[in-house]
Design a protein around this nucleic acid. Structure first.
Length: 667
DNA sequence: TTACCTCGAGTTCA
DNA sequence: CTCGAGGTAA
């Protein structure tokens, strides 16, 4: 290989990297577009002619590589959580109060624009972009590396060889959206509904060459593994991201109190339309990482951040009808059928009305003009009726007295708002139950959607969940819109689902009060269906997280003769009924001082954060409680311990200092 | 709840 | 080529 060639390729890459950064990140181009394109074309040509020169971080990657056949799943190293929402000033002040209660009054916040796009994660190793993924459910997303590489403001190589995972929001600028839709219309194609959908659609293309044409952009706003970077605050993290060559959003402000935050949010309500991209709110984060750690997380979101959402767009339309649906549990849900109307970027035709009380409370009549908005900008909601638009032609809506599907009498169980069909043979309930059984969190049978289930049920090919495992391929092929290929895939998916761990089956069965979480707890504790079937109420209540209601529901369920029969059938058909997930370690089996003990932390800890301490204790089988009682085994008293220390003395509880705790933890 | 992409089925036309 | 289903995102 001629040396000049190698040198030229290197030079081109260097120049293109530099120009790219100037243009897309700094917004200060030093060369014309034509010059850039010329260099890029030369590089692409040289690499094509000399395949040995190709490289993952070459700017030539921006034009899009070979099409993919599927998106691979990727597990995020640290989960991508969603944020809690604030809809008004009061919510923000509540948030501030909670934060200061946790970490004291010395708090600064960083307020940033919340870009309306798609959350993505970007992984770099030794400064090289190696993988990009969607958020997915927070822990597992899809690998969209090839498409993300076509976004010019994503650096393929960082200014320093660090290994880092960053998070950002990919979006389509308003301008690109408008011109893309103009192009589409010229070609006679359907335009995209809004920039966010356009961006999402672009990133879901299997062919990255198409994504490359879509002019997407990104703002990077966070680091997944900040502990490894040496920075100690969110604002420091953003500065680091700038330094590494990422594009961050400059419209951010460090605020020393909540009033400044509120002023920032309200100033953007007016400035929002003038931005070249869409935003749907403001994100507020506690700046200090130490304080973030101290605040920790709730089950679904960090306690140190919140998303302020701009007031939702409200639109007037007419409610033409109310439809009734029977759910899996027999609950009757009324749904408003609306005259189609555009709200917040999409056309809304229906909105759930939840129950009869809500209809009465809002005094909704058929034919009323109503205000509609999208709560959290996603779920449509009828806000209220426009009484002044009443003509007298409106009709009262009456809840039915009988099930719309099986015509049996509906009942309202005491203290419940819902009206229910309690006929266990109600076809609607059976059908919905089957749909639930195959759904993702339950048995997860791919290719079996609502429609196919409804069709199978209609044609009496299945009448309970065991029948699914009796289906034959030729029965499927005989159905409408079901060919050889689909049928094979479906049978395969059904067979695969037999191997599922017990909790999936338990959740799928749809026992009252047993959701995905409880199903897992039960499966972990009992490990086999037989043991669970013979459990008594006392056995169940003894388990943490299982209350009386749930215990009763479980016992009642397994005592029904038809359930016993169903489970026998499933077993005979080869469905696994054992727990096959990671083994739950029995607390008594842990060889640790903390096993089975209840520990309370108080005062200011110096070595560990409160959360770290809690996690470590729980890992060793201990339980961390909030206040001291006679059941407390041990109190860890940090600096300036207060009333809890007195309480402990009163109850004769053993007291340790933090050092002693750390020693024991590290044993 | 709606929009978007992808896939397979079924139809139409060369 | 069109249609409808499934899966994913917000």
């Amino acid at each position: 290989m001629p040396e000049e060639l190698l040198a030229r390729v290197k030079e081109l890459r260097h120049l293109l990297h530099k120009w790219n950064h100037e243009y897309h990140v700094l917004d200060q181009p030093s060369v014309s577009d034509a010059e850039y394109d010329k260099a890029l074309n030369e590089l692409v040509r040289l690499e094509e002619e000399n395949p040995s020169l190709q490289s993952e971080d070459s700017p030539s990657q921006r034009v899009g590589g070979a099409p993919l056949s599927v998106f691979e799943k990727v597990e995020h190293t640290t989960p991508m959580l969603s944020l809690g929402n604030a809809f008004n000033e009061e919510d923000l002040r509540d948030f501030d109060r909670r934060v200061r209660q946790g970490v004291g009054n010395e708090v600064s916040y960083v307020a940033e624009l919340k870009i309306d796009g798609l959350a993505v994660s970007l992984r770099y190793e030794d400064g090289l972009f190696i993988q990009g993924a969607t958020r997915g459910d927070g822990s597992v997303g899809e690998d969209i590396t090839q498409n993300l590489k076509t976004i010019r403001s994503i650096p393929l190589r960082l200014s320093k060889p660090v290994s880092i995972e960053v998070r950002g929001e990919a979006f389509m600028p308003k301008k690109s959206f408008i011109s893309l839709n103009e192009q589409k219309e010229e070609l006679g194609e359907e335009p995209f509904a809004n920039p966010r959908n356009a961006a999402a659609g672009s990133l879901r293309q299997l062919d990255p060459k198409l994504a490359a044409k879509r002019n997407l952009d990104i703002y990077v706003y966070g680091i997944g593994n900040p502990a490894t970077t040496g920075v100690n605050s969110h604002s420091g993290g953003l500065d680091l991201l700038d330094e590494l060559g990422f594009k961050t959003n400059n419209e951010r402000k460090k605020c020393s109190n909540i009033d400044e935050v509120i002023e920032f949010t309200s100033s953007w309500v007016e400035k929002r339309p003038a931005l070249p991209y869409e935003i749907d709110g403001i994100v507020i984060k506690v700046d200090s990482f130490e304080q973030q750690d101290e605040l920790g997380f709730t089950a679904k979101s960090p306690r140190w951040a919140i998303a302020y959402k701009f007031p939702a767009e409200e639109v007037v339309t007419r409610l033409v009808d109310i439809e009734l649906n029977v759910g899996r549990t027999g609950v009757i849900t009324p749904t408003a059928i609306l005259e189609p109307v555009r709200v917040a970027g999409t056309v809304v035709k229906r909105a759930s009305l939840h129950n009869e009380d809500l209809i009465r409370e809002k005094d909704i009549k058929l034919g009323d003009y109503v205000i509609v908005k999208k709560a959290g900008d996603i779920i449509p909601e009828v806000v209220h009726v426009l009484l002044e638009k009443r003509t007298g032609e409106e009709k009262d809506f009456l809840m039915p007295t009988h099930c719309p599907e099986c015509n049996s009498e509906l009942v309202r169980l005491d203290e419940e708002v819902a009206l229910r069909c309690i006929n266990p043979e109600c076809p609607a309930q059976i059908r919905e139950g089957l749909i639930h059984f195959v759904s993702r969190n339950a048995m997860n049978i791919d290719g079996l959607g609502e429609r196919v289930i409804a069709q199978l049920f209609q044609e009496k090919l299945i009448s309970n969940v065991a029948d699914l495992y009796r289906l034959q391929k030729d029965q499927l092929v005989a159905m409408e819109r079901m060919g050889e290929k689909s049928a094979t895939n479906l049978i395969e998916a059904i067979t695969t689902s037999k191997k599922n761990s017990l909790e999936k089956l338990l959740f799928g069965l749809g026992i009252r009060h047993v959701g995905a979480k409880a199903a897992k707890t039960l499966a972990q504790h009992f490990e086999t269906m037989e043991k669970l079937q013979s459990a008594t109420i006392d056995d169940l209540v003894a388990i943490n997280e299982i209350g009386e209601k749930m215990a009763e529901a479980v016992v009642t369920y397994f005592h029904k003769p038809e359930v016993v029969h169903l489970i026998d059938e499933l077993k005979a058909l080869g469905v696994n009924t054992d727990y096959t997930g990671p083994k739950l370690v029995n607390v008594e089996d842990i060889d640790s001082f903390f096993a089975g003990k209840t520990i309370v932390l108080t005062g200011k800890l110096e070595i560990l954060t409160r959360n770290e301490a809690k996690e470590k204790i729980e890992l060793l089988g201990g339980k961390v409680a909030g206040s001291v009682s006679k059941n407390t085994d041990l109190l860890i008293a940090g600096e300036a311990a207060g009333s809890k220390l007195d309480q402990a003395k009163k109850h004769g509880v053993e007291v340790w200092n933090e050092e002693r705790l750390v020693l024991e933890l590290n044993k």
